[in-house]
Design a protein around this nucleic acid. Sequence first.
RNA 1: UGGGGGAUAGUUUAGUUGGUAGAACAGCGGAUUCUGGUUCCGCCAGCCCAGGUUCGAAUCCUGGUCCCCCAGCCA
Length: 572
Amino acid sequence: MSRRGGDEIHKLKSDFVRDAVSQDVRSNKFGGRVQTRFPPEPNGYLHIGHAKSICLNFGIASEHNGVCSLRFDDTNPSNEESEFVESIMKDVRWLGFDWGPHLRYASDYFEELYQFALQLIRSEKAYVDSLSADDIRAYRGTLTETGKNSPYRDRTVVENIELFKGMRAGEFPEGSHVLRAKIDMCSGNINMRDPVMYRIVHARHYRTGDKWCIYPLYDFAHGQSDALEGVTHSVCTLEFENNRPLYDWFLDELSVAHPRQIEFARLNLSHTVLSKRKLGELVAGGHVSGWDDPRMPTLSGMRRRGYTPTSLRNFCETIGVAKRNTTVDMALLEHIVRKDLNSCAPRVMGVLRPLRVVLLNYPEEKVEHVEAINNPEDSSMGTRSVPFSRVLYLEKDDFNEDPPKKFYRLAPGREVRLRYAYFIRCENVVHNPETGEVEELHCTYDPSTLGGMAPDGRKVKATLHWVSAAHSVDAEIRLYERLFSVEEPSALTSEILASSLNPESLQVLRGCKLEPSLAQPSSDSTYQFERQGYFCVDSIESSENKLVFNRTVALRDTWARIESKRHAKRNN
RNA sequence: UGGGGGAUAGUUUAGUUGGUAGAACAGCGGAUUCUGGUUCCGCCAGCCCAGGUUCGAAUCCUGGUCCCCCAGCCA
């Protein structure tokens, strides 16, 4: 059957958000225009959950030839820092998206927002309240009881304007006054019970410095920022569903055209947490080395770990967009990372836990060079030459003196193939006289098997990776496992979160032996160490004097599965 | 218990005038393989519940159940 053009047409990405946007385009709402935005608060690093939102917002815009801007919602000077805006811009670019000239900051709108507030005061839709924070809470009521009006609710316009200007002028201490919207203290939606619009904060803002001492709350800044920018579709997460009526109220009272807000469910990933607060606590508590610790689900951590932007984008596409709360299995992310890496990662050989092997019948001084394929999935990546000699390193796990059933690697008297080289046979095992540990293997090789095939057609059951000892380069390798041993750590409170960390999430291996082509590794590619997994140079701690590799993800390991099943059976 | 949302295999999803519930991941089994990788094939497994309308319901109607969000001068 031949494939015709029509069969190749990609199914257009579709989800309920995109459907809604497309409908608006078709009905010519917003003049057929599409403009979105990604609005992070610069108070932490971006994580894979943000990637979902980034892919959605930038994706929708580009599918409609529209604009997607990057806007920092920086309305709270006490949390926000330039370090975070730098990292956020870097991460969004790395993920593969470009906001072009559309870089925005809510703090750029402080003056406009202030004027909006004045406008609401003049139309008697906002007032300065002088209740304490505790009293405001008490007056607000509860989920089941209505609230009651503040005694300051009926201040005159003149009085309100004077007080609000005084707030701006720095005449009052923090907490003495706030500006509130005058809506409905009996509303079933608690967000509508005269929400606070402005608070006094005598703190330096990382962008506006000391220019302001009153700052709008997110609720009063977000919708207007969208409106000021001409955003048509304001895509956000589910928890803002309750706030939508409030945003609409502000915009309607201000007579400003407003975007359509569409809420989707945020991402949850098994075995990790995706909450900036909790991630920040892991950093602050020293449980990880930083926001970019390769175990972190942050974009900077995943970059350092060797995950590709392509695989993260593919992941976001695969998980879809919907409204129900879900937890995606980490195994899916790992599968997608492997799939991308399998197609593009150069293959090399590296021995993680070296076992010295001497080929008794191989000449002392002889060195041969065998040709190895760089990527069997992509012949255009070519081949390389790897040195072979009398003394080699093999993987400790590839030898077993007393091999269990189904173990078909090296064992006493057994023959295996060394990848791209010769068949070798284990003749003798040298033990450490004190510990009894296997210290070295004496093997013989069959010169007629160069290239990996025997002229007599005999087969071996295993092909092992190896490194020539004299030519090897030393490296430190860091193996990573899931950050948490429990499946849903997000359900845990901050207090017990750290105690649920997986103690084996980081394992450091020293004295690993790599093939010589890795002496000068590429800093931006992730390699496949054959039969082991994918590894990349650690961007922070690796140097010319000390090579450090991070394991991105292990290869699927059927043998390990057989073994763990065996152990499970034994323990039952 | 006020208001706002949501329920399709173990997990994440598709299902557009009502017409045999489709996929991916995970799990299990097999074939191929100079990576116990990749690839390929097969198996397992699902419409929250109860009624109703209909020749026919995941889809429409009624009534339940369960889960999530909101009581920051956080976002």
